[in-house]
Design a protein around this nucleic acid. Structure first.
Length: 1004
RNA sequence: GCCCAGGUGGCGAAAUUGGUAGACGCGAUAGGUUUAGGACCUAUUGUCCAUAAGGACUUGGGAGUUCGAGUCUCCCCUUGGGCACCA
């Protein structure tokens, strides 16, 4: 050894190879002839003018590694790149720097592409796509026209989210932090903030274009089952689509022919509907409001409208509403129930009307409580109640729960009463002879499931147990009831009893219990009264003294009134939303819900009261923007012919170059002032007509770009169907989870539409999608406003792209992201420098068996790790292999070659350079991915861990051929001095042997 | 409030899916090399006890299952992220 080599200087090799790769077209598959097409796509970036940040680079690198790996596996990998530079982000930036968006786009494009070149990705640079290029947006407009013709694009006046700062309408998805409480807030229509600029969004009524994505709600949901996507993104989409199943039920207005349809997911609670609520803007409100209530109702409607424009975020969601004066008839029990209006019901969801079941819905409950409306319980809850009795006066009677025993008597009564109202009652039995032993009691008691819905009843000494336990365990329970709590004066008590009461009442338990009630009768003995008083004071409990009745003395617990008292205290003072049995509901009584909901629905349909109904949270996609920097919506309005799409031969509708392009804030696009743009002729009658002046949402641009990549040279079609057939759906799509419901849902929708219109044969755009993690800087999200955006340029300059790529990937699992810190990057640089040195300076020798083993193991592990996107551990394996070479100070040529092949997806430049230097032909990136041979992975010697009682005591080495010989291994293990020590004088009760792994002596 | 993902050394993180916890890297300490610093090389590095051999403890907390738990079960705490008056 000892060959001297030149220093590793990344800048000397990186741009050199980047140029060579381009010249040799090694990353340009022949899209028509490729035999094994593999479409490796990453979400295309919005090119901020500041340029790429390490977060972008993280995503690109992770995707690139996967693509490079697939290429080496023999696939024709297509890895395109482009820019999503149309739209509000880009325009806002242009406003900020005071430059025309078109001009700014040019600058951003140049800068972004320069950076993208520098990171060494295997992009096909001949097929770039920019959304603001007329050759691209021509086809965005063409898609709009197709949707229009198919009836999937429509116009309607709608209250929309309007951002006063961006001066445009936003889709629901682009409004964030909606409905958060604010300290000074007042109720509003539920405003949030603009996704882009953070301004508070207003509601405005405007004519808007929508895409009928709701038509595909069911399919968008259903298909999630069949695609291989990150689970969290699937869940996010599922939640966003928000399917809920229930019933639509019709309520007749009393003394009138009007009917109100309500949607409910809880048809099982219909007997508990005690009033009906309409959204304030429900069209029927006007018709059913009585003369007496008219003024109030109108005032309320006005107020809610005004509030929606007040840009204030509601505070405590205090319920408001007014009575309309009308009643309707509950169809199941013919009860006359009032009709109210309230802004907690929204016109936009369901039918804009609800049946209110205050006993089983929190919002209805709140409302009912505020306005004194009746609450009727129809679901009996599944709750637990634990009765802990006290010490008996006579030990023998303790577990005698028959009514003969006074204690037994009241317990039986309480149980019966509680079970009647739906409680599952537990009565833990104490051991006999009874000892006030808290620890034993606790062990028994904790076997019972106690949760927030539980009611605990303590009697006498049982009270002390419970209070002490609640203090210790910090459990939350619904209610604590203490019956005649006893506190025995410590000085007179036996040791055991003293111990029982030796605890402090923990103040925290007050927080954990909704209510504490203490029962005591006035003729209880002083001692008990005093202790009741003590518990009351410490727990803030209400004390119910049963004056004059005398039922609750120790000797006479068993009266009929007692369980009824419990009933009063336990029932009906809170909402219950959980599962249970239907009660008070006539024919429905006894059904279990939700498990027997189907029977309820059948019954409702049979009775003709209502029908099954499914609702989705998903709303139609609002696509118009009152802005300049976007694709003009290709629609023409003609007085004679109405709304007409621009004919396809006239596309694109070019975005005119105008000086006055800044948003107006009038609800109209800047294009509206450009007469030469607005005035046109009707495509149908050729008469005078005007153009639509709004532009398309930028999410439309990005909803189909992956089709265009395959067909950039075609100017007569959006995409070539043969190409698309060959390359799509995308094999691997990598992107940020922040687009979980925006871009990903829209592009799925667009694909479904294109399929239904006959342009393509598949309905899902991305076979496999993986979300990468977020890169943060110094523990915070990177953002321009925080000034902590990290630009990769500096790092590329200092360490080279290879080092930065690997550092980013080494931080942690690709799906997790990480915190970017300067310090650790040195480690990777050191690694690559060592690769540079060792590959060149070490002598070539034949592989030893050990070397073959570690090499094959490395190949196996790195392959597995890349496939699961665990790049961090793949890199660790490469380091281990290098450490081996370093230790041995030699390596076979085979090992060196394979190391470079394994390294090449991660650090493409250095791998290419060294590949040449060890005498191989260009290019390392055209080689096949190495395979491993199982025979080298097999160990000759295995280490058996010797445990005594599950604890590691020694390890022994044996030939792997002997690993089946348990007796032999036991013999060796027993001889080990370390093990002997632990086995001495002890009997081996059990011996566990796991072949080739572990031998465990279990002694007593 | 609901849903999702996390919580392992000083730090980023591994762990064959129930079998020696802490691979790999950063940082730190000591030594070598160097005029010096840097770079590089070698060794050590979870915590505690012990002069040592050695021992005990340890994966947010608590209980449980098991010969054996970071991994499985239950409860709790906590940090991110998403959704939210959705009927």
């Amino acid at each position: 050894m000892g060959k001297t080599v030149d220093k590793y200087i990344p800048s000397n090799i990186e741009s050199k190879w980047q140029k060579k790769w381009r010249d040799e077209k090694i990353y340009q598959p022949d899209l028509d002839k490729a035999k094994k097409p593999f479409y490796n796509l990453m979400m295309f970036p919005y090119p901020s003018a500041e340029g790429m940040h390490v977060g972008n680079m993280y995503a690109f690198t992770g995707s690139d590694i996967y693509g490079r790996y697939q290429r080496m596996k023999g696939n024709d990998v297509f890895e395109p790149i482009g820019l999503d530079g149309f739209g509000i982000h880009s325009e806002n930036y242009a406003i900020k720097v005071g430059r025309h968006p078109k001009e700014q786009a040019k600058i951003s494009q140049e800068n972004f592409y320069r950076q993208l070149h520098a990171i060494g990705n295997a992009f096909d640079w001949t097929r770039t796509v920019e959304t603001y290029d007329p050759n691209y947006y021509k086809w965005t407009q063409w898609i709009f026209v197709q949707l229009f013709k198919a009836g999937l694009a429509y116009r309607k006046k709608a209250p929309v989210n309007f951002c006063p700062s961006c001066k445009t309408v936003l889709a629901d998805e682009q409004v964030i932090e909606a409905r958060l409480p604010s300290p000074a807030g007042e109720a509003t229509g539920g405003q949030g903030k603009c996704e882009r600029c953070g301004s508070i969004v207003e509601k405005k009524e405007l004519e808007q274009w929508f895409f009928r994505i709701t038509k595909y709600a069911e399919k968008l949901l259903e298909n999630l089952e069949k695609i291989d996507w990150s689970e969290k993104v699937k869940i996010a989409q599922k939640n966003w689509i928000g399917k809920s199943e229930g019933a639509e039920i019709e309520f007749r207005i009393d003394n009138s022919e009007f009917k109100i349809k309500v949607f409910t997911t809880r048809p099982d609670t219909i007997f508990g509907a005690t009033y009906v609520v309409l959204a304030p803007d429900h069209p029927i409100v006007e018709k059913i409001t009585t003369r007496e209530q008219k003024e109030l109702v109108e005032k309320y409607i006005k107020k809610t409208r005004k509030l929606s424009n007040l840009n204030k975020i509601r505070e405590e969601r205090e319920k408001t509403g007014v009575f309309t004066g009308s009643y309707c008839i509950n169809p199941v029990n013919k009860e006359k129930i009032p009709v109210w209006i309230a802004d907690y019901v929204e016109m936009g969801y369901g039918t804009g009307a609800i049946m209110a079941v205050p006993a089983h819905d929190e919002r209805d409950f709140e409302f009912a409580k505020k306005f004194g409306l009746p609450i009727k319980q129809v679901i009996s809850p599944k709750r637990t109640c634990v009765i802990v009795h006290g010490c008996p006066s006579n030990k023998e009677n303790l577990i005698d729960l028959s009514p003969k025993n006074p204690t037994g008597h009241w317990i039986q009564w309480a149980r019966r009463g509680l079970e009647k109202i739906g409680y599952k009652v537990y009565i833990p039995l104490m051991p006999i002879p009874w000892e006030p032993d808290y620890e034993t009691w606790k062990k028994e008691f904790e076997k019972i499931l106690v949760n927030e819905e539980s009611v605990l009843i303590g009697h006498s000494c049982g009270c002390s147990f419970l209070v002490r336990w609640l203090g210790e365990s910090k459990k939350k329970v619904k209610k604590l009831i203490l019956v005649a709590p006893a506190k025995i004066a410590k000085e007179n008590a036996s040791e055991a009893i003293k111990k029982l009461y030796d605890f402090e009442i923990n103040q925290e338990i007050k927080k954990n219990i909704s209510e504490v009630v203490i029962f005591i009768s006035d003729n209880e003995e002083e001692r008990i009264k005093k202790s009741a008083e003590m518990f009351r004071e410490s727990l803030g409990a209400s004390l119910i003294e049963l004056t004059g009745k005398g039922h609750f003395t120790y000797d006479d617990m068993g009266t009929d009134e007692f369980p009824e008292l419990l009933n009063i205290v336990i029932s009906l003072e809170e909402v219950y939303i959980g599962e249970g049995k239907i009660i008070n509901s006539g024919e429905l009584d006894g059904l279990k819900v939700p498990s027997e909901m189907d029977k309820v629905l059948k019954w409702i349909e049979k009775k003709g009261i209502g029908k099954r109904q499914t609702q989705f949270h998903l709303r139609d996609w609002l696509v118009s923007r009152q802005r300049y920097w976007g694709a003009p919506i290709p629609i023409i309005y003609c007085d004679k012919c109405g709304v007409q799409p621009v004919s396809e031969k006239d596309l694109p509708v070019l975005l005119p170059d105008v000086k006055d392009w800044k948003p107006k804030g009038t609800g109209k696009s800047p294009l509206a002032t450009v007469e030469s743009f607005v005035n046109t002729s009707c495509p149908k009658c050729n008469g005078k007509a005007v153009r639509e002046t709004d532009v398309c949402d930028t999410f439309l641009d990005s909803a189909w770009y992956f089709f265009r990549y395959t067909s950039t040279e075609f100017n007569d079609k959006a995409f070539d169907s043969e190409r698309v057939k060959k390359w799509l759906p995308v094999d691997m799509y990598i992107g940020g989870a922040e687009h979980a419901v925006l871009h990903l849902l829209y592009s799925r929708f667009m694909t479904m539409v294109l399929k239904d219109l006959g342009f393509i044969q598949f309905d899902e755009p991305y076979k496999k999608f993986r979300a990468h993690g977020l890169i943060i800087a110094e523990g915070k999200k990177m953002s321009k406003s925080k000034g902590n955006v990290i630009n990769p340029d500096d790092y590329v300059k200092k360490y080279g792209a290879d080092t930065l790529r690997m550092y980013l990937m080494f931080m942690g699992p690709f799906a997790d992201g990480g915190d970017f810190r300067d310090a650790a990057i040195e480690g990777i640089y050191r690694f690559l420098t060592r690769v540079w040195q060792l590959i060149q300076s070490t002598d070539d020798k034949d592989s030893t068996r050990e070397e073959k083993k570690i090499l094959n193991k490395t190949i196996k592990e790195v392959t597995k790790d890349i496939e699961s996107l665990n790049y961090n551990t793949a890199i660790a394996r490469l380091m281990e292999l290098l450490n081996f070479i370093s230790r041995e100070n030699s390596a076979s040529l085979e090992t060196k070659e394979n190391l470079l092949l394994l390294l090449s997806p991660f650090a493409p430049h250095i791998a290419e350079e060294l590949w040449g230097r060890i005498g191989q032909k260009f290019s390392v990136h055209r080689q096949s991915w190495p395979s491993f041979d199982e025979k080298y992975l097999h160990e000759e010697e295995v280490t058996i861990v010797v445990q005594v009682n599950g604890k590691f005591r020694d390890s022994i080495k044996i030939q792997s051929s002997e690993s089946k010989a348990q007796n032999h291994i036991e013999e060796i293990a027993r001889k080990s001095g370390k093990v002997l020590k632990y086995l001495e004088g002890k009997e081996t009760k059990q011996l566990i042997y796991i072949e080739g792994k572990i031998i465990n002596f279990v002694t007593n």
